[in-house]
Write a protein that binds this DNA or RNA. Structure first.
Lengths: 246, 246
DNA sequence: AACATACTTTGATCAGGATCAAAGCAGGAT
DNA sequence: ATCCTGCTTTGATCCTGATCAAAGTATGTT
């Protein structure tokens, strides 16, 4: 159990959802968990698992980013989930992975062998409750994403994705949204296109257009600076009165 | 408690998921449930609840069809879920409805007041487990739908929707898929468009095109006959090797 | 330095679906 | 019957984003 790879910030920002399954956050369950959990790392670009493969573990993302995606016979690909630190992978009670999981950056997973995890769930109801809440939140996110995919224009899609990444980034590092904020784009243009149901050319063009309009600024290809968050929000087409953004 | 409106077929085909919360299917929990549950009916077109409204109950669809949808300020609408008999509405642990719920046909809900339902969940772990399974299934469906919205052509979208309805219909009534099957389209062209991220004109045109190709036959506007299910499947663009359809 | 590779940008053209418009159809009310 | 209303079909045209193509940029390798 190599805990030395975790610095204190990882634990300080570790969301509640992670605590539910992470022995480092719930030391009283340490021994039990240590028997069934292990860490695993993947390099950027490596597959974690393919749709249809048997999946003998569930896991929590510790560091890095992974994608959940689906590919059609002819190669058309749709990303159906973006897995950021603290997100959960896998499901108790199902043997087969329903989607492809791929590491897009270097990735560390905190894995739990499935059988003992299910046993633990049975004996610790709070884990099931926590998992239900997380799953309901994910379902809401997926449904919100359906509006983006089905009804938004290319420009609105890009703005929505940037806002999602900015929001998760801010939440994760507990940065307050100053009047400007900056972050690294973790995805290639192609990955963004797969997320948004667009082509990579359209993604590139729309990012250029947002830059030209002054909504975003770019340093290099990946470093994004947003001078005015409200401006970006208004580009998403979403209701401005939908409550606080962060 | 008016159970007389349930005929025996309703209970015979009542899926496991419904059993988890329906006293009619779990008579041993009858008294307890009777204190907290009630039936409620809605006419076709009536709203059940609007996004943002406080929601003081959870419910299970008994008969009829409802939709979950999201609308943007400018009126663009995306349906994010189709609620058929046995589907669950609402979520423990959240006060506010995240989406609009509207009855598209006459609708009967089996409602449970939220507080006591949550108490019941706490004391009956199997309900939470069941709810987790249902939610995970819904999440998978939502993610599969993201592929439809993001990457499929209009024709493939229509074929996918017809197949989903046919599949659910067959499962609900336990009809075996003969070499041909028929069902009523419960949705207007506009509702189908909202589900598929299309306009109603495109839906109409693609349905006409599928009819002209002989993939489907229509009696009137709503009664659909599918002479060859495999033919319809091949129109969805999905992998044919994805296991049995029903 | 020269090259290779992967990613990105930009241009030109095309096509699928949206939009605008009008007519057809069925069921219900008077 | 006639009218009305809501739903559906079909036509004409437009536009957004896809496709095809090529050049630009950054990073690492020999």
């Amino acid at each position: 159990m190599n805990h030395s790879s975790f610095n204190s910030r990882d634990c300080g920002t570790c969301p509640i959802r992670h605590r539910a399954v992470c022995s480092r956050c719930e030391p009283d369950e340490l021994e039990h968990l240590d028997e069934i959990k292990y860490y695993r790392t993947y390099e950027a670009g490596q597959p974690v698992i393919w749709a249809g493969d048997p999946m003998e573990f569930v896991a929590s993302v510790v560091t890095g980013i992974a994608t959940l995606s689906q590919t059609m016979e002819d190669g058309r690909t749709q990303m159906v989930g973006l897995l950021l630190p603290s997100d959960f992978i896998g499901r108790p009670g199902r043997e087969i992975a329903p989607f492809d999981v791929v590491a897009v950056t270097d990735l560390t997973l905190c894995c739990f062998r499935k059988k003992p995890f299910e046993d633990l769930m049975g004996s610790t109801p709070s884990i099931g409750t926590r998992l239900l809440q997380m799953t309901l939140d994910e379902l809401d996110s997926a449904r919100e994403w359906m509006l983006v995919l089905g009804r938004k224009t290319a420009r609105e899609k890009i703005a929505s994705l940037l806002l999602i990444i900015a929001r998760r980034d801010a939440a994760l590092y507990k940065r307050l949204p100053a009047d400007g904020m900056a972050f690294d784009l973790p995805l290639t243009r192609e990955a963004m296109a797969d997320y948004l149901g667009l082509t990579l050319e359209t993604v590139s063009r729309q990012i250029s257009a947002l830059k030209k309009s002054g909504v975003i600024q770019l340093q290099g290809k990946r470093q994004v600076h947003i001078p005015d968050l409200q401006r970006l929000v208004s580009e998403t087409g979403d209701d401005l009165d939908g409550g606080p953004i962060f």
